[in-house]
Design a binder for these strands. Structure first.
Lengths: 342, 342
DNA sequence: TGCACTGATGGAAGCGCTTCCACGTTAGGT
DNA sequence: ACCTAACGTGGAAGCGCTTCCATCAGTGCA
């Protein structure tokens, strides 16, 4: 059964629709008795006014932007989301933020279709999902501006991401400068489950730094697995079992770095005295753990991405300036100078 | 200038509005030339079809629920939000989630007004904000069902929260069972900046356990300050400076527990060998830190709250069953049995 | 008694779209 | 030559509201 309209209410209350509307809007000049009649009719029918009709009629439209994010178990999305919020606030909250979560990578396309279908959104921020050409077309056809926010740059203008290679270089360089010469890389498989070559790019930075310093790394020093603390733990165990274990580890994310640290401690060794560990991201956790890492200003990235999107929405034809987040080495307590025979 | 409508497009293209609509909907039976005319008119005018009019006309309405949250710097909101998402997914994503952030507690009322005004939302989840009677009336008047999700129970039916007193009791009891007799409490001032008596309730649980075990605590053992790691650090310093420092500390949140631990270590003492510390919440961080704490199943709370809200929205008159999250002691590495003279 | 004014009320118009029906127009069949 | 079907097209109706204008009854005043 369709939900009742003000016409139903008017009929039940024995008044005109104008009067009903007036009651609904707390307008003056409705007699108390009439008001009571209307109110009780509303109650009886369980009437709720349609927000859509109201918006159309008043012409007041609030605009929505969507953020499509993985079902964020990973802290980095949280931090980006915070930046997104901040950008929205700085824009006077003119836009509502609709949060879409993708539980599994496969369902991403389905979600996107639903979003376009619904047309609930004026613009879309897509975080850490590989946007296929087909999907781009879909969004363009629906003329929904979008910005991608991820670990990896597609080279497009509407993409906010750090320079992963540079980041990998910075991390590895730090270890090399500390005179480590046995440096392992712990990262995701190439590409990861979302189809991103993040790990590969950071690895390339690692290779590039190693090459620049003239250090050769055996293939066993490159350990790839699924993302997460657990997998990193196992990989680190493998590394420790090597005839010549590394003296330093570059983990492609802070979470994985923590996994490595736990494995090292479990083996009765100390960080950084025996093995140095550097991560990547600088999530909030890292501050507490005291992890040395490469900060990619996640919050700032979120901020920049949303700012870009809002610029696109509010100045449709204008030239939009894109800023990219900076990378920065943050030295804390999990790395130290290599000491031989100590 | 108002944005162009399909009438404008039709006029510019020299066709009828029906044809424009057909082009817009990729309907068949439009000749290629006509289609091209319409498309170019759309391009020229920068036309974008109104989603509101479309919704009204098609009758397809997607529904929105809002979540009003503090500008979540605190990890506990993130975890709750995850549960909220899960509940939404289990509901086939029939509802979109609009995220509202309150930057400062003072602006909460303003936000709420805007939300009601906008009428963008069918239901509202209010997290960790004290909902005044006035605000309840506002929401009721707008007939927006809402659920509050916070640390503290108001006794209302639409409130999901843990039993803080019980939690305080559990934490303290754990320390007492470990034969500690000098137990301090570190918490927020009563009430905290959001007007919540969370700290007071947990403190009451502490007092109750102490009384049950016949242990008397000096007033200096009760340390209250603003929320956060920093403040807890200072409070712990004060405790350590006491003639008879406590042998165990119950911090009302994990973050504050971490602050205490840092202060203890800074003073050259060890946790748990010299002083045991127990927290409250079991945020993700605590797993990494190895903190003993009282788990309040934050994610589950979020889940339950959203589930309750969705039940209210989908079965308006039905009897709704409310579940409350359970509390659970999680023993990790920051507490141990009291050893005198060791 | 008549007039102007006020307050309460009914309902048409209009918001921008979709959809359906009606109206050519053309091609194919007899 | 006529009829039918199919195709392309225009535009009215209607979605559920708000708002404005018209109406009507009542009131005060000359």
């Amino acid at each position: 059964m369709p939900s009742p309209t003000i016409y139903d209410v008017a009929r039940t209350a024995g008044v005109g629709i104008g009067t009903v509307s007036r009651v609904l809007n707390n307008s003056t000049s409705v007699s108390p008795e009439t008001q009571e009649k209307v109110l009780s009719a509303i109650r009886v029918l369980g009437f709720r006014r349609s927000k859509v009709a109201r918006q159309l009629s008043t012409g007041i439209q609030h605009r929505n932007v969507g953020a499509l994010m993985p079902n964020f178990t990973h802290p980095s999305f949280v931090e980006r989301l915070r930046g997104v919020q901040l950008a929205l606030q700085d824009h006077h909250n003119d836009f509502n933020l609709i949060l879409y979560t993708v539980s599994e990578p496969d369902r991403c396309h389905e979600q996107l279709l639903a979003i376009v279908e619904q047309a609930a959104v004026d613009g879309l921020l897509i975080a850490t999902l590989n946007v296929s050409g087909e999907q781009r077309d879909l969004l363009n056809e629906a003329s929904i501006p979008f910005v991608t926010l991820s670990d990896v740059c597609t080279g497009e203008l509407n993409c906010i991401s750090p320079d992963n290679m540079q980041g990998g270089y910075i991390a590895t360089q730090h270890l090399l400068e500390l005179e480590h010469r046995h440096i392992a890389y712990v990262g995701d498989e190439f590409p990861n489950m979302y189809g991103f070559p993040t790990s590969e790019l950071r690895y390339k930075g690692y290779v590039s730094a190693m090459t620049d310093y003239g250090v050769i790394h055996p293939p066993e020093y490159v350990c790839l697995g699924t993302h997460g603390e657990k997998a990193a733990y196992s990989l680190m165990e493998q590394l420790l079992a090597l005839p010549e274990p590394p003296t330093a580890v570059f983990a492609m994310s802070d979470i994985q770095a923590v996994g490595c640290i736990l494995a090292i401690r479990e083996a009765g060794l100390r960080v950084p005295e025996d093995i140095s560990v550097i991560g990547f991201d600088d999530v909030q956790l890292s501050r507490y753990v005291g992890l040395t890492t490469v900060r990619q200003h996640l919050e700032q990235s979120g901020y920049l991405a949303m700012q870009l999107l809002l610029d696109m929405l509010t100045t449709p034809d204008g030239v939009i300036a894109r800023q990219l987040p900076r990378l920065e080495l943050v030295v804390r307590g999990t790395t130290q100078r290599y000491k031989s025979l100590v």
